[in-house]
Nucleic acid binder design. Structure first.
Lengths: 213, 213, 213, 213
DNA sequence: GATGAATGAGTTTTCATTCAT
DNA sequence: AATGAATGAAAACTCATTCAT
């Protein structure tokens, strides 16, 4: 049994790292890696600068932890949403794409592509991690779906090596937009409308039809 | 006879600004705004730090000048390559897209999207400039082409407000890739193959056909 | 037992600002505002440059704080020394003037008039502060004393608006001298002798006498 | 005969140094030595920075030249106005003092005391020059006048070593005021009124009278 | 003689990191 | 475990001075 003299509640130190990572992600998302000061992060996390060093040995390490940890839930979510796919492949693909705008709307984690793009040069191991864990797996996943469509005679035979980029590019653009130009041009890009159009074009583009162009 | 020792410096008034801007673009492209030191730029331009201040009042101003000036040739080139379009709209669009990989290959100017995305938050006026001068005009341009296709009965009626994003997204991805993840994954994304596939999908997606999906 | 090696630094939060201000006053007094480097001040205060910025946002702000804070004790002392005046007004005035050389001898605060004169142009708000808090009050104070003498029939009626300047001018000269030419001419101006003469002349000049000049 | 092809007039190079010195005095008077940039002086003199170095080897040397040259006319004027003194010594002294406000009004040279006080510490040789050429001679001059008064039985016997300071202090204050606090307090000190009062007090203070205080 | 582009040393300022408390 | 005062290295920026033109 725990000491009964303990205060009724207190901040559990086990949460600290996670709280810091979240605060850091938000800060990095807002100003970029170099322009955010550790003091910003500390204040946002409700601690002091010194405390950050109890959990992360340096600003760079904190950045890396932020990226890595923030990707985990995204990857999990993505893979789950596809695992047991049934029905026409077109529907499957459509669902995948349409689910994107919702995912983008909330979390600060959507800023990760922006951060990766901005800092890849300065953080090679982060770039490689992202290539291995996100890009490769994402490409494979989408290639698998499209291959399924081709094999079932639903889709035309296309370059499976690059189709993932074509599928993802507009979605990625949505995420990048939100954290850059979108801040100054509220109405210019409606994620939902863009995804609807993207699905429309993509499926028309992939689907086998009688009349060839 | 005068000493043949090289002079400490040489008058280059007219060329200097351009040389500095070029050196700065390369530096910013490599490391991002915050991580490039003025000394890097100066050395690359073959001058000293002090000289930068003869032409640009601050690092921020230099950055702005770099973006603005580097966009001019891009805009010009883009607009020229479309001016007098003849023939089927599909071909026109295909040509436009296919010309992109070549443009991306050489210049450091292809790093501008990356820089804009990374620093939009910190440089609002730059973001607005880019929105007005590049995004808006680009959207209008592509919308015009697609409208032409629709009016001539070649293309299906699609959302003209967002079609530009669908057309541009993969091309943009190519440019971003080159200056970020592409540095660590030479073969992962072949711009030409991607564009070929993109054209294929896009035209199949846009073109009017007998059989509806 | 703990290591006896001196710690790299020590917590001095409460004392630091005052220590810095004192070091700064001495430095500014010696070389003037522009010619003193923050490093000089820091070293004199036994800290590093960075520490200065924990307490003062800029060199200019430090300068302002120095002037303002250094004036407080001077003002207090001056006002106390006059509060409860009794006896002949001449004696009162004489005592006031005679007390000046002693006050000038010790503190670095006597350099403030020099600093104000040198930098008034560059620090308008400091000049106004000094006008309001020192000059105005000083003028009023002396005018009050002289008025008392006139009302009691001890002094001739003189211009009360300017008499303070006549009373103060030699005293001020003493302070300025000490921090400028006095450094190179030890014996040229003896503050005590000057004040003695000043009192003599001033009282002869003010006192009512039978024979008019 | 000079070439007839010469332009009808041109800037005579013999005037340049003097023009520069004047421009420099004005600039130094306005902002102090350290805060005025050579570019300010150059622009005010209608030349470029490089030209300054044709005439003065450094900023410090220019400053010294400014002080030295600006003192010459002041000294000459002062000495002339006293040379052949006749009549009562009181009148002589009164005239001397009353002439001061006029002298102060116009020239930028009245800023010299301020500059000397501000920079004496940083320019020892200038301080010594000023001590020898201005202070000493000024003291001697006034002491001579007062001695004359004493010898003629007009003045009381006073400390001749310090009387000059008592005579000069209010006048000096006038000059300092004009270039410092006076910029922010137009009406606070009227030089003429101050001098009138000063003469009044001083002569009452010096003059021999029947009734002792 | 005059210019002004270029220099480079010097100074302020910032901020990630350390460590006594 | 947490703090935050103190550090010190790095970087932007200034400006007196030089020198090719």
């Amino acid at each position: 049994m725990r000491s009964t003299a303990a205060p009724r509640w207190r901040r559990r130190k086990d949460d600290r790292p996670q709280e810091i990572v979240e605060a850091a992600l938000e800060s990095f998302a807002e100003r970029g890696f170099a322009a955010t000061r550790l003091d910003d992060i500390a204040r946002r996390a409700g601690v002091t600068r010194g405390t950050l060093y109890l959990y992360f040995p340096s600003k760079e390490d904190l950045f890396k932890a932020v990226i890595r940890q923030s990707l985990v839930p995204i990857l999990s979510r993505a893979e789950q949403s596809i695992a047991d796919a049934k029905g026409p492949t077109a529907e499957l693909l459509a669902r995948l794409i349409q689910s994107f705008p919702l995912a983008v709307k909330d979390g600060a984690a959507t800023a990760i592509p922006k951060l990766i793009i901005a800092e890849a040069q300065n953080f090679p191991d982060l770039a490689r991690f992202y290539l291995d864990e996100v890009v490769s797996r994402g490409r494979a996943l989408i290639a698998t779906i499209v291959r399924r469509g081709i094999e079932r005679g639903e889709f035309r035979a296309v370059d499976l090596d690059h189709v993932a980029y074509c599928v993802m590019a507009p979605l990625l653009l949505t995420a990048l937009w939100r954290h850059s130009l979108g801040l100054y041009d509220a109405g210019g890009l409606d994620p939902q409308a863009l995804c609807r159009l993207h699905v429309d074009l993509l499926l028309h583009g992939l689907t086998v039809r009688k009349g060839a162009p």
